[in-house]
Amino acid sequence: MSLSPRDLKQLFRRLLLIRRFEEEAFRLAVAGKFANYHGGMGQEAIPAGVCYGLKPTDNTMITHRGLGVLLTRGVPVGEIFAGLYAKASCPTRGRHPIFHMAAPDLGILAGTTMVGSVIPLATGAALAARIQGTSDVTISFFGDGSVNRGDFHEGINLGAVRKLPIVYFCENNFYAKSMPLEASTAGGSIISRAQGYGLPGEVVDGNDVVAVYEATQRAVARARAGEGPTLIECLTYRWTPHSTAGDREFARTDEELEAWKAKCPILRLRQQLIEAGHASAEELDAVDVEIRHEVAAGVEFAEAAPYAAPEVALENVYL
């Protein structure tokens, strides 16, 4: 479970890939290249850390800010950009926003945008593993905005009462759109709700990719061993608005944002790698150059990609 220098460099690469993608996607959305973008800049350590140790047959289900999960589980950069551009050359074929992108061979089931409704769905994927006798684990991602929905309580209760192989993974970035957590969530804590369902709960520094990885590995091991779900609450912060559709968020202050930027997950790992002598600054800069090229090539791919024929809109409503 402990990470080798090679693993850490891999993680660094993934963090940086998500960051550069996020930056570019945000820029393009603001420039009006596509309708809307729900950015997760600042939260990169979570998808990178969670997905690092997963088997391809493990399932992930995402919500609005799940871009990093798609990237780290292996959907090509160009295809995700094509998804944002609503082009044909990707699994959505321009029919849905990328949070509904499905790639079952990579373990990616379509997420939902009905806040929290993904939690019972992911619980069902875990139920299938139990019924089918596989050792696959499901990760259900959701934000702090989901925890006051019936879906959260009903989904987690069902997973807990049947000890299903699932990890409930809350990305707490303290704001549901414009609503601060303390104004929406009674009891002052998300993690304390784990206790109500008899689950182990763990609060993790969501900007520390190693901590995220390790907590996930503990929870996945429990799930695989048949010991049931874990609720993980990762504390993090998004650096961009809820979406690029002109969202203003009065409660979020510049000071708060700067404080969180100082905890940038990428800078932290970079420093760690250099201080431990695992990599030189030049080596890491070279990775960045390479990634920038990869992202630029992805955008180029998407720009050049065709739109799907109109008839595609009518397909696969039914099988």
Binding site: N59, M61, P104, L109, S117, I119, P120, L121, A122, T123, G124, A125, A126, L127, A128, A129, I131, Q132, T138, G150, D151, H153, E154, G155, N157, L158, V161
Partner: peptide, 19 residues
């Protein structure tokens, strides 16, 4: 459990995996 939103959701997730 009496939790329709929970188990209907779970049935959908399970069906996606072949149940």
């Amino acid at each position: 459990p009496i939790s329709e939103c929970g188990f209907v959701g779970a049935s959908v997730g399970a069906a996606l995996k072949g149940v």
